[in-house]
Design a binder for these strands. Structure first.
Lengths: 258, 258
DNA sequence: GGATAAATAGCGAACGCTCGCTCTTTTTTA
DNA sequence: TAAAAAAGAGCGAGCGTTCGCTATTTATCC
């Protein structure tokens, strides 16, 4: 299946095409991970290191996903991985550092890699759609990483916690900027770009936070990405009917109390 | 301000009106809480109990919001509340039970109270909008409770964890049902009611999960509720332009891989 | 209605246990 | 066989929880 050349992202807007163009995959990620943290990892032989890093971090995602990172003890991790306590400490310098490595690798290596694929050409609408798709596709490829950083950033050091909020604000601002470009170009219509951007980001995050739900109702990655893009189009379409109050009850569009 | 009678929910769709009609408020909630858990709480004098329950649970929300419930020790809680370790155990039977009390009170008392205010009269669109507003308004009134249950359900007992997912599915199903009623009545248009319902729920949850963000950009409760309802109207409007592919790039609406 | 008795609420040191982490020893690798 | 990696017993700190005790409020009696 999908054996023909599909490496023509972002013209071909689907998951398969994106995967072909991304210079990293689920299988190769721990080689890059090892490279990024060479200095912190005591084990020097790459073959053993990459193998065990995969075992350790995959098990961490698994254990942290039920009960949270705090509730996972290193003895649990030792048992799940089959690596002794001493062995684990050849790969991590502390439990906190383990969490920080996930956070740093995702935010400094994986994510930038993907966003660089959002070519700066095309209309605002194209670039916005492409960006939304990148978020969703990356979420599918590295779901455990994204979910871990989202859920566990609060238990990390002050610096990482603030960083997590910063990334949220930056992502929102980037979406907002694209929306406002589209509005300026007359291609989109939006009365509140800030809230619209926030909403799009929330729906992106829902994709990797509620994966159990989307797996259950058999929503594929492309299904969700297509849905999100079409939702974006509806939100930013020109709705001629003004303050319509469609079927009764008041509207209350002004800023009220609280 | 707002001194005139506004207790005409759901005809008057604003936060103030909702608050007037809800038979509980931020101030009175711990009286009902005490009543609900009389048997589990060793302290019998209501005046002392209600006062300290407020102190204990408000402090729990505060401490758990930074670092999580697991990271909060009962010594932290003792220090924050000014109540000794032994004193705390007159109000809770265990740390786990503390979390469970929050979960049970919200899901069995607070939430049902609110949803009963969703009158069964009116068009599907009216009832859907009313329901969305109820979620947002309840999230504003009892944000710490909702956030605690969302964030900490994973560290609760198996039963509560499954329950949290169940409530998510039930809420989604209820929204979906209303959407499909509207579609059947020709009042709405929707090609994927399941995903649309999921999206609406995600945006509801974003309201109490990212309160720091909405406070920062000065989005009021009514602002957000109005935004959400207008978003709903746009999603469910009749979009005449079919599979338009507005400005280039392919559409790919089918279920693809993964 | 003040003194006494009973009931309730609050306190905090101490317990058993598990945690993250270290260190010496053993095994594996090239 | 020398260097690298894995092993796992052991350490002190900090956890949730308990329990004997004191302080405070409420009820009873002359």
């Amino acid at each position: 299946m999908m054996s023909d050349e599909q490496a023509n992202w972002p013209q071909e807007q689907c998951f398969a095409s994106f995967k072909h163009c991304l210079p990293v995959c689920r299988e190769s990620v721990y080689s890059q991970f090892f490279e990024a943290f060479r200095e912190d990892i005591k084990v020097k032989r790459e073959s053993a290191a990459v193998k065990n890093l995969k075992i350790i971090f995959d098990a961490t995602f698994e254990l942290a996903s039920k009960g949270g990172f705090d509730a996972m003890s290193l003895r649990d991790l030792s048992q799940s991985t089959g690596i002794s306590m001493g062995g684990l400490y050849n790969y991590i310098s502390s439990k906190d550092m383990l969490a920080q490595m996930v956070n740093d690798f995702l935010s400094q290596r994986l994510a930038p890699l993907a966003y660089s694929l959002n070519l700066e050409s095309g209309s605002p609408r194209q670039r916005l759609a492409t960006r939304l798709r990148i978020y969703i596709y990356m979420g599918s490829l590295f779901r455990p990483w994204y979910r871990f950083v989202y859920m566990e950033s609060k238990s990390m050091a002050r610096q990482q916690r603030d960083q997590a909020k910063q990334f949220d604000l930056i992502d929102t601002a980037k979406l907002k900027e694209l929306i406002e470009e589209g509005v300026a170009a007359g291609e989109m219509h939006c009365s509140n770009s800030e809230l619209t951007a926030s909403a799009l980001l929330a729906l992106i995050q829902d994709w990797y936070l509620k994966s159990w739900k989307y797996k259950q109702n058999e929503t594929s990655t492309d299904d969700y990405a297509n849905f999100l893009v079409s939702l974006m189009d509806k939100l930013l379409a020109d709705n001629d009917q003004q303050t319509h109050d469609q079927t009764g009850y008041n509207d209350h569009s002004g800023k009220n109390n609280q």
